[in-house]
Design a protein around this nucleic acid. Sequence first.
DNA 1: TATGAATGAGTCTTCATTCAT
DNA 2: CATGAATGAAGACTCATTCAT
Lengths: 244, 244, 244, 244
Amino acid sequence: MATVIGAGDRSDARRNRAKVLSAAGEAFAERGLDVPLGDIARRAGVGAGTVYRHFPTKHSLVEAVFAQQLGELVASGERRMSRSAPTEAFFGFVLDVIDTSRSRTTICDVMSADASWPRPVLTATVARLHQLLTVLLDAAQRAGGVRPDVGPDDIVALTVGCAAMMTARHDRAAGLRLVRLTLDGLRPSGPVTEARHFRDVRGSAPGPACEECGAVLTVHPTGRPARYCGTTCRQRAHRRRPAP
Amino acid sequence: MATVIGAGDRSDARRNRAKVLSAAGEAFAERGLDVPLGDIARRAGVGAGTVYRHFPTKHSLVEAVFAQQLGELVASGERRMSRSAPTEAFFGFVLDVIDTSRSRTTICDVMSADASWPRPVLTATVARLHQLLTVLLDAAQRAGGVRPDVGPDDIVALTVGCAAMMTARHDRAAGLRLVRLTLDGLRPSGPVTEARHFRDVRGSAPGPACEECGAVLTVHPTGRPARYCGTTCRQRAHRRRPAP
Amino acid sequence: MATVIGAGDRSDARRNRAKVLSAAGEAFAERGLDVPLGDIARRAGVGAGTVYRHFPTKHSLVEAVFAQQLGELVASGERRMSRSAPTEAFFGFVLDVIDTSRSRTTICDVMSADASWPRPVLTATVARLHQLLTVLLDAAQRAGGVRPDVGPDDIVALTVGCAAMMTARHDRAAGLRLVRLTLDGLRPSGPVTEARHFRDVRGSAPGPACEECGAVLTVHPTGRPARYCGTTCRQRAHRRRPAP
Amino acid sequence: MATVIGAGDRSDARRNRAKVLSAAGEAFAERGLDVPLGDIARRAGVGAGTVYRHFPTKHSLVEAVFAQQLGELVASGERRMSRSAPTEAFFGFVLDVIDTSRSRTTICDVMSADASWPRPVLTATVARLHQLLTVLLDAAQRAGGVRPDVGPDDIVALTVGCAAMMTARHDRAAGLRLVRLTLDGLRPSGPVTEARHFRDVRGSAPGPACEECGAVLTVHPTGRPARYCGTTCRQRAHRRRPAP
DNA sequence: TATGAATGAGTCTTCATTCAT
DNA sequence: CATGAATGAAGACTCATTCAT
């Protein structure tokens, strides 16, 4: 069991650890989590064993890289929170997350759950991020800057999605434009659709929605609760079900 | 020197090809593109050699799987185009792409360019998809159902982003709600932000935009063309630049 | 998970499996369980992957090698049992195990429990061997050819010890001579020591023995049961105990 | 170019050397010679470099550990020699070696030649041990306490074998009983077998023996010297030879 | 000087691809 | 032809040994 090294150690060790961390960050961003550890070592200018001494598993290296990056995000978010008006802080933070995620494409892999990579990783940092997001969102919603019917989980998903947009659109400015388009949907004066009549519910479970298309369902005080917004969706959902 | 088998061959060969294709589709969806070829073969109930007879490379198998899936999408899109009103057809198609991508998570990997997987893959089918999208978008825009200042590339990026949202939000209905929120931003009555005054330009290059925040820039007929919308953004961009 | 291959497969596969098995047997005998798998593969004239196909772990290869060797031993023992007189069969079998163990030195590692190698291995075959030994021993004891106060576990330990002797004494004949000297102690007319008055108890727990020197203790029907054969041994055992 | 430190150096260096030595002894006993050097260093509470300062190779550490342990044995043997009657001294010494080898299982690896570990190691100490053994054996034999037809090499092999027995039999008392059973074969009134007529030859080459079963061969002054004790053994040996 | 960080060759294992049956 | 066995180039990880602090 290799000894994991803390911050109080020898200066050269600390320097090496930092070199490895940043090399890994770059490598992951450029080539995905599959880059060989040897490449990272070479990029950092150290031997493979050194990487290993600091991060006893490739897994733990991934963990450390993202923990650091998320840590920086959280720090910047906390700074914003104390310095800006609630709404501004919230949107600024989300934009920060999205924008910086360009240089670490794989953040999706880490934050989203379908990642093939074992991900009970990062739990602590992710939890901190989530909490910060909740606080910021809550404040922004109380200030009237964000529609009240979205919850933290929605924001996380939107963020991941926006990061993906930025990645898909190679032009940074164009990508940001799309992101703004998307995030503007969060404002209370947001866009209006056929299925727009969201109930004013705080949190991530904004009341019953059509299981097929997601439209908000009118709640009747009596009768069997509706699952779909109409016959069309009921039929579609039926077709989707596997034959018994 | 395996002979690749076309559609005109013996029927059992065609059947095998289909079996492999569907097994690979499932496997990729469930476990990502990294699933070993042997597993796919086993799942398909054929030998590894048989997979190779039909697809000379793993790469080409990936290609074929997504070509087929995109092909189905394109077909459904074409059906929509001929049957529905332009705006409805456009949004229906995009929603289709997003919604079905849940069962093949990796569509991002294939459509987005930063995928670690070599992707000059699918060129043909992707081109067809792109063209269909262009046509649908154009029609919807002409019908006034979609704001005129977005181009096909924007739509692709939005689609990829929305697929990511669906993946990140495990609740399908909640995911769809976010997607609608996002796509509503495409409607002409879309949301309005400080940086909203998009110029009415078709295509993926909607005129000069702030390189930092994406806001549209007012073009002055004389003088040096602006790169940023203001001092704030200029300063930000400056900080982003690596030290010389 | 590589597919492990049974006996009913392709002939070349079977041949390769056999080649690997015998190469591994030789290699383990010559150089211990630590020989690199690559060396075994080279010795067998196959690729590393082939070894892997047949034995998904190095562990399982070790397992298979010893299972086979023990299997052969068991078979020969069973043959002896049906063909020879009990005492002859018993000694013949034990000598067989000891003598053949020269060509597979590491049998100790597998049969003895302190082997650093994970050894819940082989349980089935070892159990069979143990049972055969029990039957043979029992028959020989009933025939009066083996003193009645030893149990199967004693025989296993003696066997392991004798194998070690053979290994330590490079001259095969001289080694066998020592082994005979040792095994002769099993005969009813065996050697006589100060502590020789073993109780006539069958099995591996032949009644109370001095915890220090192993001499058989006289059992008194009353009083506190003795742990040592005398003051000398009690004192020695005391010195051995760690200070409190 | 680490300087090896002798016994005449600073006292803390000597203390460190001792700590490493004892830590290594424990580690080898518990986990075999394969225990990583780093673990030994940690167990000793020193840095890896310190281990290296005292023992320039892992090999030399092993050497030192066993040299020390054997040294202790030799010392105790010499004490016995001067204090006890010859026979008692001999058997006491051998039992000592066997019994203490329980706490350093790997003595077999060091004393027996097939050890995968390079062993021209301990030559000096082993030679001393060997010499002591020879003296003790000789005295015991002259005193009539040990049969005259065994040599020092036989004793070494018996000792190694008995140590293996102790290891194989987890119950210490039961193990000791087996050991006594075995060592009793060394007494002049030892057991008698079909192949028992050992010639009274001192040393490790006690005259011509059957190459197959080890029985002593009658030497005829004329004719071709016999290699086997009879037709049965000749046939067995023939079957053992590899096909040409 | 002692420490423990760095090194890199060597080991096991995987898997895309080829090829004998 | 289909099958699945063989191949061998990587990749993750270990650890004896060296060397900077």
